[in-house]
Design a protein around this nucleic acid. Structure first.
Length: 558
RNA sequence: UGACCCAUGGUGUAAUCGGUAACACAGCGGUUUUUGGUACCGUCGUUCAAGGUUCGAGUCCUUGUGGGUCAACCA
């Protein structure tokens, strides 16, 4: 018998399976995806979404969507809606309504009171600077705050008055009383509540004190009875505090598990920097097709399946990683190769005249829509005496390895005839303005009796039957592989000035009915999708990704 | 001068718990092809170091080395 291929589990699946086997939480699996609504989701979040929702799917569990909205100064409803849209677009549905940490503000307040009553929290009147000064450093222990030993009654009174709005922003904070000498800085009496007289996107002006992340996140997990609370590595040092809160409160023990975040070369991933790119106009918004945001990738033409496959391929582990952007590109090519209809579009046109083809004659050439999928059928494309072909598909004095058109050489026009290059016309500047050729009338595609051989195949459109379209050619946003990896240089210095080039192309008439979001393979050129800017009269395409091009690669080396 | 974490080909992830290092991407070469695409085939190349335990170590132990995180009233 063949050895059965055992699917290997990543370390989080391992933990979940162990928990199920041990009957922990009655074998229940409940994960959560907890974005802060202060920016758009990016491909790194997609990894996390696929992980959390994927785990639940695999083990018969559910996933909550919870907005971590404890900081009213940066959070907005616009982001909430965009995030919900992105998660659904990726193909996932959360359990029930979306949740908000702000739903639990009352409960969280009660937890804080409980801590105070247990002598585990105190109100500190120190300024931010004073608190920082006593905090110590990673290698030096901190010192107790002079307010650390206030009575429970006084703390209770002060905390209630903080809530009542008696004090201005920053006047007082509530701190957990843990250990100012702990080697883990996060355990040195962390701040758990601060005063912010600010309107919250959901609770309005009900509160003027807001819990800090460390006092909100774990308890929210606990309130929702999350079994596996998955976050990225930089929260590793928070885990003792996460557990301390849950244990001190004696509430449901959710477990925090950390994994390494996704990094991609040739881009930046932090929300702060992405926001900067948007705010400073280096890109045209969060959904600019050059952005690594989910909305940007969507507009670029990426499919949800390609992103899910990508997320699967990058794996889950605990070591820092930098994924090559080519893996993302592979994932979208792989998907689109199977699903995108082939069409012809000439991006950089030059006129081709078939001198022995009857003037005024038009033939409808039948073309297969997708050689990878017969069910996609075929279409008719008009062919005539004058065509546009790609300028780079013709060369005078071509080297032997050049399989395209040249004087004295044969080449197949895709889905039509084999032609023979004869000569070309140039303008005063020496640029080719027109290419002349003859065709073999009996070489028509599908009924070729010519016996003529052609090494290459070109795409084309009829000059009299084509549609002009705006095509946005995107390239990577950064020229450097690690834009953040240079000590003395700002990442903005590495922005690629040619990351967007807009051109006018001639595309085949069948594209007339193309609608926003439709994806195509422009044969031999790449995958393109219709941009939302597109209208009935003015088509706009975004280039998603080129085809692999071994010819271009070969030339580049020389 | 602290705590915690990490270390497998160019990149990423495996090796089910000690049994002779695999998969994907990238690279290189080739076959097929009416897309220089796809598909297929081949090829390159890996256990941070030094000790130790063991018949046997990527896996266990020790010590190094290298990298990451932590001193926001952000999450």
């Amino acid at each position: 018998m063949d050895t059965e291929k055992v699917e290997s589990l990543h370390f989080i699946e391992q933990i979940v399976e162990d928990d199920i086997a041990n009957g922990k939480h009655e074998g229940r699996v409940l994960t959560r995806f907890p974005p802060e609504p202060n920016g758009y989701l990016h491909i790194g979040h997609a990894k996390s979404i696929c992980l959390n929702f994927g785990l639940a799917q695999k083990y018969g569990g559910k996933t909550n969507l919870r907005f971590d909205d404890t900081n009213p100064t940066t959070e907005e409803t616009e982001y909430v809606n965009a995030i919900k849209n992105d998660v659904r677009w990726l193909g996932f549905e959360w359990d029930g309504e979306e949740l908000y940490t702000s739903n639990y503000f009352d409960q969280l307040y009660d937890y804080a009171v409980q801590l105070i009553k247990d002598g585990k929290a105190y109100v500190d009147d120190s300024t931010a600077e004073e608190i920082a000064a006593l905090k110590g450093t990673p290698t030096e222990a901190g010192k107790d705050s002079p307010y650390r030993s206030r009575s429970i009654e006084e703390n209770l009174d002060l905390f209630e008055r903080m809530k009542a709005g008696e004090f201005p922003d920053g006047a007082r904070v509530l701190r957990a009383k843990i250990d100012m000498t702990s080697p883990n800085m996060l355990m040195r009496d962390p701040l758990i509540y601060r005063i912010k007289h600010e309107t919250h996107h959901r609770t309005g002006d009900k509160w003027c004190i807001y819990p800090m992340y460390d006092f909100a996140h774990g308890q929210s997990d606990s309130i929702e009875k999350i079994t596996h609370s998955i976050c990225t590595l930089e929260f590793e040092n928070h885990r003792p505090l996460y557990d301390w809160c849950i244990n001190s409160l004696g509430i449901f023990p959710s477990r925090q598990i950390e994994f390494a975040r996704l990094n991609l070369n040739y881009t930046v991933m932090s929300k702060r920097r992405l926001l900067l790119l948007v705010k400073d106009g280096h890109v045209n918004g969060w959904d600019d097709p050059r952005m690594p945001t989910i909305s940007g990738l969507r507009r670029r033409g990426y499919t949800p399946a390609s992103i899910r496959n990508f997320a699967k391929r990058v794996g889950i582990a605990r070591r820092e990683n930098v994924i090559d952007i080519s893996l993302l590109e592979f994932s979208i090519r792989e998907d689109l190769n199977k699903t995108a209809a082939r069409v012809m579009g000439v991006l950089n046109p030059v006129k081709l005249v078939i001198t022995n083809y009857p003037e005024g004659q038009v033939e409808e050439m039948e073309m297969i829509n997708n050689p990878e999928d017969d069910s996609m059928g075929s279409r008719k494309v008009p062919f005539s005496r004058e065509l546009y072909i790609e300028r780079e598909d013709f060369m005078e004095d071509a080297p032997k390895k050049f399989f395209r058109l040249s004087q004295g050489k044969n080449v197949r026009l895709k889905g039509a005839y084999i032609i023979h290059g004869t000569d070309c016309i140039k303008n005063d500047a020496g640029e080719i303005t027109e290419i002349h050729c003859t065709y073999y009338p009996n070489s028509r595609s599908g009924s070729d009796e010519s016996g003529v051989k052609a090494k290459g195949t070109l795409h084309w459109v009829s000059t009299a039957h084509n549609i002009k379209a705006e095509v946005r050619i995107y390239d990577r946003l950064f020229l450097d592989e690690t834009p953040l990896g240079h000590k003395d240089k700002d990442f903005l210095e590495f922005i690629n000035p040619d990351s967007l080039k807009t051109i006018t192309a001639y595309v085949e008439p069948s594209l007339k009915t193309a609608k926003s979001g439709d994806r195509f393979q422009f044969m031999r050129k790449g995958y393109f999708c219709v941009d939302p800017d597109s209208t009935e009269t003015d088509l706009v395409f975004n280039r998603t990704v080129t085809l692999k091009d071994s010819w271009a690669k070969k030339n580049k080396k020389k």
